[in-house]
Design a binder for these strands. Sequence first.
DNA 1: TTGTAAGCGTTATCAC
DNA 2: GTGATAACGCTTACAA
Lengths: 330, 330
Amino acid sequence: MARRAGVSTATVSRVLNTPDRVREETRARVDAAVAELGYTPHFGGRALASNRTNTVGAIIPTMENAIFAQGIQAMQDALSEEGVTLLVATSHYDAGREAAQVRTLLARGVDGLALIGHWRPDETYALLRQRRVPFVTMWSWAEGADHPFVGFDNRAAAAAMTERVLDYGHRQIALLAGVTKGNDRAAARLAGVQDALAAKGLRLVGDPIELRYDLEESAAAAARLLSRDQRPSVLICGNDVIATGALIGVRRLGLRVPQDVSVVGFDDIDLARAVDPPLTTVHVPHRRMGRAAAAMLCAMASGAEAPAPQLFDFELLERGSLGPAYAAVS
Amino acid sequence: MARRAGVSTATVSRVLNTPDRVREETRARVDAAVAELGYTPHFGGRALASNRTNTVGAIIPTMENAIFAQGIQAMQDALSEEGVTLLVATSHYDAGREAAQVRTLLARGVDGLALIGHWRPDETYALLRQRRVPFVTMWSWAEGADHPFVGFDNRAAAAAMTERVLDYGHRQIALLAGVTKGNDRAAARLAGVQDALAAKGLRLVGDPIELRYDLEESAAAAARLLSRDQRPSVLICGNDVIATGALIGVRRLGLRVPQDVSVVGFDDIDLARAVDPPLTTVHVPHRRMGRAAAAMLCAMASGAEAPAPQLFDFELLERGSLGPAYAAVS
DNA sequence: TTGTAAGCGTTATCAC
DNA sequence: GTGATAACGCTTACAA
């Protein structure tokens, strides 16, 4: 390509990177040659010479979870406006795989890294620091963390939802939580529910049940729970998939929501509006968090000092799956 | 790093790439140094010297569509077993953005590329061929195409579903299709429905309506359709999101599914099992297609000749949203 | 404003 | 089996 425009490779490089440092006429000539040959700079060469890749990485548990799909899509849209490519890797909720993916992404020279949640082995943080890669964590409020993050207070949100449930008169409350092992979001939500109950001197009906992100498993658990002697009047669910599963389980027993039993979810994914009754749930700004993380990483990759954590608000969304506790009243 | 093990960079390279071509003792020494320094080879340098990146790209419309999220996740899982990284880009259903993303991914030196569907400007194909990048198309059956693909016959599947609908006695049939512009899958599904009707000398009630991937828009369209004089007894929907929206629209009118009106979907995403009644739909093996595409790309990137297209079967899944056409009978 | 030339960290081709 | 050494395509002083 170099001399198709009759200039040196250096000038081509300038046209591409600092167009204002080159005479208009020369620039036009180079641009023409670029267009004509369909030239695209070689990524490897660029990375090697400049030690930057214009790439940031994100490691999420799985794309099959709609909240991450949304967040990552928003993040990618924001990054591509800045000419930055997003490299997405998945950990399947496994700390070991996450660490391996960190290594992979570091080897590819990412200029920054986004990770979900803040629970991970010290070794992973040590690796990140040793390589001096800017990183942010997402989706949770990492209180007192010494790294930037963008998230919201899962614990407070769960507590707020629980208080709302209590306002409706419910006292027989069961909790269908997500798997808390290695998942600070799920754990915080569980803790939030317990907080709100403890504040009123109440306790759950039975122990919290931890469920995977699976409709059938959740449906079965809900049905089992509702067949016990002391039937709960409300099922508080750790996410909307569990809540939807619970709805299915309730339906199988021939019970009605919310007349016979209430169900509340968390996340506000599409599913929440699609089911009948639509789910009362906690709205979480997944897309806004994705965009905010993108902005933070861009800033940090450009050498900015570690930005302040960004905390988003949640919102209680009443849609119909939470009603008064008739059963408890009778 | 090079001489921490007291060897040349060439030997380090051999240990990493062709370990069997180096003496056991030397190898051990290098491995030790690698571990000690936490060394990872520089991706850019590697790409520059070897002209391979162990990266393949995929361009999908959006990750927010669950079928692509599933397929891409499966593809990524399969690729990572081969040590290949997947670079995901999104086009938002826009041919121009797709072409731009092709350029971006080519610039990053991907060893192969996966694209959704086979409708795209000739220029995009020309670019792909000019750069000699192996590529496959996914999700549709590109009859007579001169490139490898992995997909299924959207048209035949839609026809089969329509025949099933006819078997239930429906004659007042409305079609809520996806947007067909630039989307061969949506267009093929629409054509399939028309095929099956034409074979029996039947016609749709009104024109096919094209809807975006949106619950509310679909709900509104369904409600409008069912408020007309000649009310359809069944709504055939181009995908499960539209079908779910239709379910919501039906519910708003106080009608029951399937007693008053039937609804059928397409894709079999999670949503289909979550709604009430669960959707009768076409099951599409999204994950298997993702894995198959990964295998094809790996083969092609390793220099294999263009593999034969891989066609997957669909499956009609009856779940409850399709019932007999009482209304039509009366 | 532009060209020259020295790297950047690998791999590949040779000798040894 | 291993070490020099020359690419690979780009960026970036530095010189012109």
